[in-house]
Design a binder for these strands. Structure first.
Lengths: 124, 124
DNA sequence: TAATAAAATAGTAATCATTGCTGATTTAGG
DNA sequence: CCTAAATCAGCAATGATTACTATTTTATTA
């Protein structure tokens, strides 16, 4: 286990304790409950560092915000264009890693996104 | 075939004639060779409209720009973190559509992204 | 332990891709 | 031809993200 700063550790815990794919700003609001005077820049910097490290996933679904995800198991992101929520869907296998390798590409991270409408919104 | 404006039609042709996943700004520069006084706002608006229509794909790989893709066949995007290029890799099947359906989610568009290093950059 | 270097932080200012706005122009359908 | 709706060019505004700086914390070495 790496020796993280209190700020970085807290940010990581926030991501581990939710499945809501928060934005940097949302993470900031959560972390402030523990470290009230943390700065937004610190949140951005640590999210970038953790993402670069491969500990968390950085995800862009086209809503103007970057979303962050602590779940590193292979899974798809279902983004409802109606309500904006991002749902997780487990994947049996991470087919992309193999596809990348076949193309001479070394895969480090894979992202699966589906755009559509969730069942809840379709019911309305 | 829809009746597109000259601007929208030209933008679409630019996307159909490349596999480089251009940004809005890059599309703008190409289209200007045909329509010199087109405005950047028009490019953005039409890219959004075409994307909303499902005619093109809007893709964010985390480099700060939105990328656009005229290729609607199921394929993965291999994003090299070294050189920044986005390579296409054909997929045998669009497994995400099925995964979405299993979760009660109506799929309209699917996006596959792999982050890593391309063979060319690894050789250096 | 004390001294020093390196890394991380809080707070704030700057950036710049994207969106919004407005008045002019084009298109569609009678 | 005529009117309404759609689209446009040009430019201003927005706001998520990044950059910067002085300060604080952590790591290293003697």
């Amino acid at each position: 286990m790496k020796n993280y700063s209190r700020q970085r550790e807290t940010i990581l815990q926030v991501l581990y304790s939710t499945d809501t794919h928060p934005t940097a700003s949302a993470v900031y609001n959560e972390v402030r409950k523990v470290i009230p005077n943390i700065s937004l820049g610190t949140v951005y910097r640590n999210l970038a560092a953790l993402s670069e490290e491969g500990v968390i996933l950085s995800l862009s679904v086209g809503d103007g915000y970057e979303h962050f995800d602590g779940n590193r198991a292979p899974h798809a992101h279902l983004h409802c264009k109606r309500c904006g929520k991002i749902y997780d869907a487990p994947l049996k296998q991470d087919i992309l890693s193999g596809t990348a390798k076949e193309n001479g590409f070394s895969s480090e991270t894979t992202v699966y996104i589906v755009y559509g409408v969730c069942s809840k919104c379709r019911a309305d």
